[in-house]
Write a protein that binds this DNA or RNA. Structure first.
Lengths: 338, 338
DNA sequence: GCTCTACGCTGTACCGGTTAAGGGCGATCG
DNA sequence: CGATCGCCCTTAACCGGTACAGCGTAGAGC
């Protein structure tokens, strides 16, 4: 390793024959510097390969130009069979890159890591914190917001905090309504659902959408619960079939669970959609490729990430027009399974 | 926003009735502090909710306790239909979490972002940089290493740099050899391959493994190229079928491409494995679930991430026993497709 | 009882930037 | 022609920690 000494402002200043302050102003693009001097400084910067020390800069500016994204799951579970977080990351990353901010990724599954996140943000390591989907009524976003740290959540908070934090969510209820009405309009009457975990807003709202629509149509509810994983969908579908062998349709609250449900139906010798129609929720890439291709409610996950990031950028730049809540539209995508 | 002032060392010192230096030593766990004073400081820290300012600390220690992971793709492509990067992230994250280091995620698809990564590392924002899979002979790892910044790569560098950087890779050639020998031993003789991109070491090595094994058996090669995406696998399989309708087996250099190939075979009316046997490479979760379940070469992706992170931690801690190269084993997983 | 040593704490000089206050100098105006 | 003004640059005071040198104090040794 060569470990060439990193040049400092001081070195650049000496080389250009000016003071540190002048170099600082040139580097930060101040216009009140004579052209000749500005040129000299730029040349010195180039010759020495000067790069400002971020720690020193942060110490005085109280900004780090980086933003944390918290994935409230253990590193174990995230990414295991989940396509949601990668898409969120992608959206967030696109937007932060454009703003020249850095993305710090943190997993916060355990209580201990909760603490770590809080300390990390308090240590001024990041300018703001984004939460990607949350379980239960997590106190962390509210706690950080109370400390004056910009916070944005994905997913409407389950319990409205005393201090409301901006969030972005999708129209779960509307999308599910479309899906269930589609099932009804195609002649189905015994429509069950595999619902998501009830400690997540996505789980709660999608179940509400199902219940509201069914009730409006005067039909009977039939619910089994999963945790958004493929396997839980498979098991839930089995339970539904055991409880009501006559069911002719099912709305499954996530694509992953829907693929599990397709498997369960296949195992049980049911044809899809002839015997049982299936609708999912997410519209992952793989849902176009399943057998049969999955009818599903599309939610714009990448856009959620982008929107969160934009809200965050607005907050850290003290823009006044940052909306408290953004709800993105969902849309039924009809394929072969229903 | 309440924006409570963050307490400083100074404030804690005043409250505890000691000097800044003493508080600093207590906070950093030095043992040469009298118990009574240590207690008093701890209490003051707790009462004030003191959290050390990371920027100030980094300024003097020249360390940030965070590590960058570079995904050399545009944010667009990463995660689109790729399951490799999420798994790497998961492995890296597990290991860094345990070491209480933070993970900074950066995309570096464009030349411009290349520059950003270099400046970012040079600014001392991170203590080290890890590269997750690379295209071509990327000069960036070598450049950073030359600047004295700890670097670890996933995937053997395509052109050995003048300054060798530690890397972790898997035994591509060995795994592919197992796969192709399996095809031969089950009676196949017209064995084609869908190879990966030849600007990536994984693409090159897997093709080499195929070629070496076929040659050793005195069989004829038949190659089409893809770029590891499902769609490219589908198209490549079509070309192979058009060129040799008699082929009876194919080794596909990635699971994603293999799923595309399965689709192409199905479209062409070929039964798998009766007419054409298919072996993939990766062993993603979804490969157990395809129809038929995919025989494939398992590579330990999460372990790659963990190993990279461990090497990195060794480097930043100046451990002497950091191996230059770690090659993890691969293993044929036989399912129904071959 | 005095010196010596060891220990533990304080004082302070940094780390590398930013920024407010201050000063030199040429141009402008009366 | 002198006072005033404004433009640009320099000086220096921070930001909040770390770590080293140094000093006070207490206990040991004789």
């Amino acid at each position: 390793m060569v470990t060439r000494e990193r040049p400092t402002l001081e070195a650049v200043a000496r080389r250009a024959g000016v003071s540190r302050a002048t170099v600082s102003r040139v580097v930060n693009g101040s216009t009140t510097v004579a052209v000749a001097i500005r040129e000299a400084v730029h040349q010195a910067v180039a010759e020495l390969g000067y790069v400002p020390n971020q720690a020193a800069r942060s110490l005085v500016t109280q900004r780090t130009e980086s933003i944390a994204l918290i994935l409230p799951e253990t590193a174990n579970r995230v990414f295991s069979d989940d396509l949601f977080f990668p898409a969120v990351i992608r959206g967030v990353s696109m937007e932060l890159d454009a703003a020249d901010k850095q993305l710090v990724l943190m997993m916060a599954g355990s209580a201990a890591s909760h603490d770590r996140v809080e300390r990390y943000a308090m240590a001024g390591h990041v300018d703001g914190v984004m939460f990607a989907s949350m379980h239960g009524a997590d106190p962390l976003p509210g706690a950080l917001a109370r400390l004056g740290i910009p916070v944005v959540c994905s997913g409407r908070p389950m319990t409205p905090a005393e201090l409301p934090v901006p969030y972005v969510d999708v129209d779960h209820v509307g999308g599910v309504g479309q899906a269930v009405r589609h099932l009804i309009s195609t002649g189905h009457r015994r429509i069950a659902t595999v619902a998501g975990p009830q400690d997540m807003i996505a789980g709660v709202d999608r179940l509400t959408g199902y219940q509201d629509t069914l009730r409006a149509a005067g039909l009977t509810e039939h619910v089994a619960f999963g945790d958004f994983t493929r396997d839980s969908g498979l098991r839930a579908m089995r339970r539904l079939l055991a409880e009501d062998p006559q069911l002719d349709a099912v709305f499954v609250a996530s694509d992953m669970m829907a693929h599990g449900a397709l498997q369960a139906l296949k195992d049980a010798g049911r044809r899809v959609p002839a015997d049982v129609a299936v609708v999912g929720f997410d519209d992952f890439e793989i849902s176009r490729l399943s057998d049969p291709p999955l009818t599903t409610v599309r939610q714009p996950i990448v856009d959620m990430g982008r929107t969160m990031a934009r809200q965050m950028l607005g907050l850290v730049n003290d823009k006044q027009d940052v909306p408290d809540a953004v709800v993105l539209p969902t849309e039924l995508v009809v394929r072969a399974s229903a």
